[in-house]
Design a protein around this nucleic acid. Structure first.
Lengths: 231, 231
DNA sequence: AGGATGCTTCGAAAACGCTCGAAGTATCAA
DNA sequence: TTGATACTTCGAGCGTTTTCGAAGCATCCT
């Protein structure tokens, strides 16, 4: 298959409303069953099954069989970044005020995972706090931990040395939050920080959604360790 | 229109072979006429016209009327990054050996523009030289100029201060070259460097293609200023 | 074993979107 | 003004894709 045909195939897969729902629904990094994805997209199980098979064959998804369930997840960070970049175009820049204000949306806006890192108000707050304290520098195209930021992560027990393939510096990626329209911390560093928060019990998934809530313990540690002031 | 519908619409626009050809054809950053794009995609002018109108209305393209020609270009760097990220998924990682070896392809591989910066062997060589000399640090997610790199750019007359919105550091973005499968310099810094090379007459577009050739003068300056050794 | 649940395969109907010929508008050239 | 070029609009044909009911496997539970 020619290069252009592959390109069109991949884009077309993301270009169906049902499949688009599933892909964006998987953007929190979790693995969902075929049934959950069908419900999420508002289509029958048969239709979803066919879609999922095609996306898996094309390399967009990975599937893991577990009993009578089949768990589907995004195949790689590259796929997540593709979806993110399409969202960037699809989200109208005008105003940036998404008027949807349900109770569920509120939880999502407060904090959620964005594939492998933290987003929403939580993600933005952490990024802001790190930048404010001089631990992080975030530009439009890229970001990096400063020396103090590196030693901070070191103290927290996040092994920044193994993340980075280069010698000294830690380079990471900003990700424009589509509810806050502000950059937060993505890339390898963002993923490591997110994992750390889960491991230490600072944050917890809200059952059945992609939202995360900060535990009381987490609230204290985020404030003391990272200087994050949550409202 | 719901957020998901917008997402699907954008992706579907990129998901048609004809439109995909046009979009990737515009990835060199030039503005092409409707006729050129029709020829490039192998479709009639009528069909192309309809495609171009849809993509323009959706915010993917910008059109500029000039006499009886209509010049189309990608609407923004964000669109270019979306296309780039789709290519990332579409390009099979296996081997990375694209066997096409025409004379035109050779020129393209030697050097070309990638939206607003330099790619191909030329782009990779420049990035390698800068990294090798300690002027640049490139990670998987991000990159930055070092202090010596900043003063180098300063000496060249590239105004790094106005590029960066932060105080001291210059953060940029790596872009995985899809012919070399190696990162080169993109983002604001990459764009500024590319412009500088054009302005100084170091490189020149090969008529009618997206390839760029290095002028004798450019060859000398690239070697002397940046330490780039072109084969 | 028997029944329920989760998912896939099959097949056919319906809808959607791509495509191009023909005709229309705008610009340039002489 | 006349003709040529560049592009767009209109309309109809036609292939692709989506969709879901029905049936078929696979797995779990009791």
């Amino acid at each position: 298959m020619s290069n252009n045909a592959r390109f069109a195939e991949i884009a077309a897969l993301a270009g169906d409303p049902g499949r688009a729902s599933m892909l964006t629904g998987l953007m929190d990094g979790r693995a969902l069953t075929a049934g959950e994805l069908a419900h999420l997209a508002g289509i029958t199980a048969q239709t979803a099954s066919s879609h999922l098979m095609r996306m898996t064959e094309a390399g967009l998804l990975q599937v893991e069989k577990q009993g009578r369930h089949r768990y589907h997840r995004l195949a790689s960070p590259a796929v997540a970044q593709m979806i993110e970049s399409i969202m960037q175009i699809a989200t109208p820049v005008t105003g940036g005020k998404t008027v949807r204000t349900g109770p569920r949306d509120a939880a999502l806006r407060a904090g959620r995972t964005c594939y492998d890192h933290l987003a929403g108000k939580l993600g933005v707050s952490i990024a802001d706090a790190l930048v404010g304290a001089g631990h992080l520098e975030l530009g439009r195209d890229a970001g990096e931990l400063t020396d103090t930021g590196m030693s901070l992560f070191d103290r927290l027990g996040i092994d920044v040395g193994s993340i980075n393939q280069k010698k000294g510096r830690i380079l990471c990626r900003p990700c424009l939050d589509w509810s806050e329209r502000r950059p937060h911390l993505a890339g390898a560093i963002g993923a490591a920080l997110c994992n750390h928060c889960f491991d230490k019990g600072w944050i917890r998934r809200v059952e059945g959604t992609r939202a995360v809530s900060v535990t009381p313990n987490g609230q204290r540690h985020l404030r003391e360790s990272l200087g994050v002031d949550l409202i």
